[in-house]
Write a protein that binds this DNA or RNA. Structure first.
Length: 298
DNA sequence: AATTGGCCCAACCGCAAAGAG
DNA sequence: ACTCTTTGCGGTTGGGCCAAT
């Protein structure tokens, strides 16, 4: 017996929204709010849409102050930095970029940013020729055309216990905790200890939507504030080499790749072949690399 | 002019967490 | 403590657009 569908699929319209549907939804929410029940909302206003679809349309398109496209270099940097730090937690990343939706950022990353980085990666690779690079990885290069050799041994950090079925994505508890503290300031309005840990105390707790509403956006801050805590301890210093991680106000106009202070750490240490192998730079690889940095800069 | 292929984005899907009863 | 409903999230897909052939 499967899960009950969220709506009567036979009676629900799919596909692109018409201007009339948009107007109906927007004017209702403007006047009454969502009413706290997305499932019931489309019936109330006579829309043949699934509640989830209404919610998505509102959040990603109709909501006031939504920005589309035109990502700035600073936004690029923030997205990349956070992706390196926390992976594909788009909602958290979006919380740092006012006016941006998680869907927008996700699309932007998948279609452009990732390719930008990989393009740079290939460029650097061809530029270096046969030069081998060993910086930062804790192991030799395994970026080459032939079959990949076995990856270098990972530093042996104590694993963080995760709940069953959850992939252990982070191997450095304190750095992630500090990152999330920085991101959210606090993790739960109901957590008196404000420990940054889930109630089981086993793994970092990520900000809930409620928490995210309280997050002070860092959009206007220079990105070095993102990565450096107030006591000058590099926030990600356990994960990234401090000398490469100062990202000041962007002055270069030729794109992120020409900004020597910008995403250089990504190119030199993450994606240019000195660390990751193959075409894709996935989170697992990045995580391995971060583990290496933890070992080096702890 | 027609076709093809890649890019991009809006929207859908399914899962898991959170909340209510 | 348990079940059911709703919400939120991240991955994926469908289709429009555009450049190349």
């Amino acid at each position: 017996m499967g899960r009950a569908p969220c709506c009567d699929k036979a009676n629900v319209k799919k596909g692109p929204w018409s201007p009339e549907e948009d107007a109906k939804l927007k004017s209702y929410i403007d006047r009454h709010g969502t009413g706290g029940n997305w499932i019931a909302l489309p019936q109330k206003i006579g829309l043949k849409r699934c509640g989830k679809s209404c919610r998505l349309r509102w959040l990603n398109y109709l909501r006031p102050n939504i920005k589309h496209g035109g990502f700035s270099e600073e936004e690029d940097n923030i997205i990349c930095s956070l992706y390196i730090s926390i992976g594909s937690r788009w909602s958290i990343i979006a919380a740092q970029l006012p006016g941006r939706t998680d869907n927008d950022i996700k699309n932007y990353w998948n279609t452009r940013l990732k390719k930008k980085l990989l393009g740079k990666q290939r460029k650097e690779k061809s530029g270096r020729g046969k030069q081998t690079a060993t910086k930062g990885s804790g192991g030799g290069p395994y970026f080459q055309t032939g079959p990949p050799p076995p990856p270098p041994p990972l530093p042996s950090l104590p694993p963080i216990p995760y709940s069953s079925g959850e992939e252990a994505r982070f191997n450095n508890h304190s750095s992630i905790r500090r990152l999330l503290m920085k991101l959210g300031g606090r993790f739960s309005s109901q957590d008196p200890n404000n420990s940054g840990l889930a109630p089981d105390n086993d793994h970092p707790r990520y900000p809930s939507i409620d928490d995210q509403a309280l997050i002070q956006p860092m959009y206007c801050d220079p990105i070095d504030q993102l990565i450096t805590s107030s006591d000058q301890t590099p926030l990600l210093g356990t994960a990234l080499p401090p000398p490469h991680f100062g990202v000041g106000p962007t002055e270069a106009s030729g794109g992120v790749y020409e900004n020597p202070q910008g995403l250089e750490f990504l190119y030199d240490d993450l994606v240019n072949g000195s660390v990751f192998g193959g075409e894709s730079v996935d989170w697992g690889e990045m995580n391995q690399w971060i583990c290496g940095q933890n070992e080096m800069f702890a």
